[in-house]
Design a protein around this nucleic acid. Structure first.
Length: 746
DNA sequence: GGGTTGCCCGTTTTT
DNA sequence: CGGGCAACCC
């Protein structure tokens, strides 16, 4: 598993590459545009690659072509992706085409490439070898510490927001000294920039970097050391970039710098699939490619090999509502009789109705021959997965929720990794703080304070400070034991494999016992996860090697096993394809998401629309869009309107599958709700013979019996409610009818 | 130092 | 409605 991310260090300087005379056979499999994208090796090239047009094929074939033609040697080619998954896939496909040479190509995520460069010259940017890459939780803790230390009201100005601001600066390639007054955020009375300074300083003290640094620091390095930059510029004859629409400004600067000597930069992407602006991606990179790179050639891949005409027609019409596009017209490469099935659009009464009907349709489709693994439910927000999980469990259908909680972000895994980090490196203060009192050993804030002071006066790490600090006997005993434990682990790691070391340390420290004693429902899962970690560790020769890997990998369990239905967010679906795709929750407020509209206005709306486009274009044969007229969000029933995206779908490509006779359905629904209400109150439901369809259930029965406060009448108890009109028995003035909005819950 | 209660707030997520 | 966190109490 680690081998995917290793590089063969074959950068041996030798003579020029040897050029070949004949075109390789594999070019014959390409269509004319793909052929052009592959063989136009010189100069800047932008490949606008629509959904399903064979972008990965172009990228891998292009590298294979460059190598086969002898235009460069493997280590002179740099290919960057966003995700480990994409890198892995590309590497595997390349290996099939060119054999072991693939291992010498610089192929990896931006971050992985960044680490590789930084590991070679750590001192130039103030790092020591073996620096730590921080996870989000460590970053946030650090920011919080800094802000609290500066006396900031953490509730008013949250560390998460602060960290976000820092990240946006880093996304733009701005070190603290480069942020100008105008770019400083108004956040926290303009103190944000100051915190950024301190944050970077603290990172260096801890010999740590965050994800943003993996790009920012190489850029800094190139600035300070033009000789090193020149070395890389001369090395990389050809640079390729995947998912260019998702790059941020720092990544753009990185690519621009490195491609300067040869100018052979090939970016592949689709502006219509840019869905990550909220984390710093800059659509301008792709929109302005031909302006920033002079003489750039733009090649459009518009032949779609994936979807039917109806799916493509619906998707194209939808995305045509966006302005500021580079413009592509997707054409079906393989025509189907009648254009395939129409996109089905259904309205349902509520979220659970929607979930149930979708699962039923999935069963029908499965019976008709589509394997579960060729179907997917794509949701806008992760809370939507819950409703589907409930139904899937009830129906006994194997499924997998992708994304959500990542393996390496789980508490128990971060803890276990922290133990390992500390064993390898006793100056890792963050790891120390994480595990010193886990399981509880009676080491609290006070002891940490003492250690921090001792560490400062003797300029050592917290772990080393234990030897110097003045401690109460009981604490002394515990900490000496802890020191011993870690040192013993260190000793063992010289002779044992990482899995054995981890097992020993997690047992001896009492960490495993802590979870075994834990009665909560999650504890079994946590123990399982740690066992899974032992498995992963078994693949590594040393702890060091494992930690390098773990820092940049967030998921091991994204792969589905056999016959499983996948449920995931639209964001996570980018780059994937399925026979049948289900797109629930197309409702105003949810999709487009209200927050996207509030925060980014029209831009936000367009990004939401691109997300819808991404979702639709994942489908090969069938797409199902649906919305519910009532949905529980934040514990409250909402009655959203169908999404405007539903209206934007062209009539000739869709079929309205909403069950007819809405009136009847309306009646049934109201009865359903009434029954649900009765059940909630613990009553049984007798018969709805007497029920007229006009019955409207009271909106918020849960206010009954609640204590409330009224400005003029004082405290009281709700005794009856009719919509917003409540009858309250006030302690002082007796029963009164008042409007809910004049009351405060107590 | 550890457990409990009460309050706030609520996207998307890779590395 | 529920999770996460901070203030509060033992």
């Amino acid at each position: 598993m680690s081998d995917i991310f290793d590089f063969d260090e074959a950068d041996v300087a030798s003579a020029e590459p040897v050029k070949a005379k004949h075109e390789p056979e594999f070019l014959k499999a390409l269509n004319p545009e793909q052929y052009q994208a592959v063989t136009t090796t010189e100069g800047p090239v932008l490949v606008l690659s629509g959904a399903g047009t064979g972008k990965t094929r172009v990228l891998t074939t292009r590298i294979a072509y460059i190598l086969a033609m002898g235009l460069a040697r493997p280590w002179e080619v740099l290919a960057v992706t966003f995700t480990n998954k994409a890198a892995k896939e590309m590497k595997e496909r390349l290996e099939k085409m060119v054999g072991p040479d693939a291992r010498s190509v610089w192929l990896g995520t931006f971050h992985r490439i960044g680490v590789r460069i930084l590991s070679k010259y750590p001192e130039c940017v103030g790092l020591k070898p073996n620096f730590v890459v921080l996870g989000t939780d460590d970053q946030e803790r650090l920011v919080k510490q800094i802000m609290q230390g500066a006396g900031v009201d953490i509730k008013r100005y949250t560390p998460a927001t602060m960290l976000d601001i820092i990240q946006r600066w880093k996304d733009r390639g701005l070190a603290p000294s480069a942020v100008t007054g105008a770019q400083n955020s108004g956040f926290c009375e303009g103190r944000a920039l100051g915190f950024y300074h301190v944050y970077q300083q603290r990172l260096r003290e801890l010999n740590a970097v965050d994800f943003g640094d993996l790009l920012l620091l190489p850029l800094e390095l190139f600035k300070i050391r033009p000789d090193i930059l020149a070395g890389y510029q001369n090395q990389f004859r050809y640079i390729l970039v995947d998912e260019y629409q998702d790059t941020n400004i720092a990544q753009y600067m990185f690519l621009r710098l490195l491609s300067k000597a040869y100018g052979n930069l090939c970016c592949v992407g689709d502006d219509d699939q840019s869905i990550y602006s909220w984390r710093g991606a800059e659509v301008e990179n792709i929109l302005g490619f031909d302006k920033t790179f002079t003489d750039a050639l733009t090649i459009r891949l518009e032949r779609n090999y994936r979807s039917t005409e109806h799916i493509l027609g619906a998707a194209s019409a939808l995305i045509s509502n966006n302005s500021g596009r580079l413009g592509k017209t997707l054409k079906v490469a393989n025509e189907t009789a009648g254009g395939g099935e129409l996109v089905k659009v259904s309205g349902y009464w509520n979220g659970s109705d929607e979930a149930e009907k979708i699962i039923q349709e999935i069963e029908v489709q499965q019976a008709r021959g589509t394997p579960l693994s060729d179907m997917a439910i794509l949701v806008r927000a992760s809370f939507q997965t819950r409703e589907f999980e409930e139904v899937l469990l009830r129906y006994g259908i194997p499924y997998k929720v992708i994304g959500g909680f990542k393996f390496y972000e789980r508490e128990e895994i971060r803890d276990a990794v922290a133990y390992l980090r500390l064993i390898l490196n006793q100056t890792d203060d963050l790891a120390f703080l994480r595990v010193v009192n886990k399981p509880r050993r009676g080491i609290g804030d006070k002891v940490i304070e003492v250690l921090t002071t001792a560490a400062k006066t003797h300029s050592v790490s917290l772990f080393e400070a234990i030897a110097w600090a003045e401690l109460k006997p009981a604490v002394r005993k515990t900490l000496d034991w802890f020191v011993n434990l870690i040192k013993e682990g260190k000793e063992l790691s010289k002779s044992m494999n990482p899995a054995q070391v981890a097992n020993k340390i997690l047992e001896d420290s009492g960490y495993m016992t802590m979870w075994r004693m834990d009665k909560s429902i999650e504890s079994d899962g946590r123990i399982e996860n740690i066992k899974e970690l032992y498995n992963v560790l078994g693949d590594f020769a040393s702890l060091n090697e494992f930690l390098d890997y773990a820092a940049l990998v967030t998921d091991t369990d994204d792969k589905t096993e056999g016959e499983q239905l996948v449920v995931m967010t639209l964001h996570a679906s980018e780059g994937l394809e399925f026979d049948n795709v289900f797109l629930p929750g197309w409702e105003e407020g949810l999709f487009p998401h209200q927050k996207a509209l509030d925060e980014a206005g029209d831009e936000g709306l367009e990004e939401e629309r691109r997300l819808a486009y991404v979702g639709l274009t994942r489908a090969k044969k069938r797409a199902y869009i649906s919305y519910a007229s009532s949905r529980k969000m934040y514990g409250q029933w909402q009655n959203p309107m169908p999404s405007r995206f539903v209206d934007e779908l062209p009539a000739d490509h869709i079929m309205d599958c909403t069950e007819n006779a809405m009136g009847r359905r309306g009646a049934y629904d109201r009865i359903d709700r009434y029954v649900a209400d009765l059940e909630r109150k613990g009553k049984t439901f007798a018969s709805f013979d007497n029920w007229t369809p006009n019955y409207t259930p009271p909106k918020k029965t849960k206010r009954l019996g609640k204590r409330v406060f009224h400005d003029s009448f004082g405290y009281g108890t709700v005794i009856r409610e009719e919509g917003d009109r409540l009858e309250v028995h006030f302690d002082d003035v007796g029963p009164k009818k008042v409007l809910a909005r004049f009351l405060e819950a107590v």
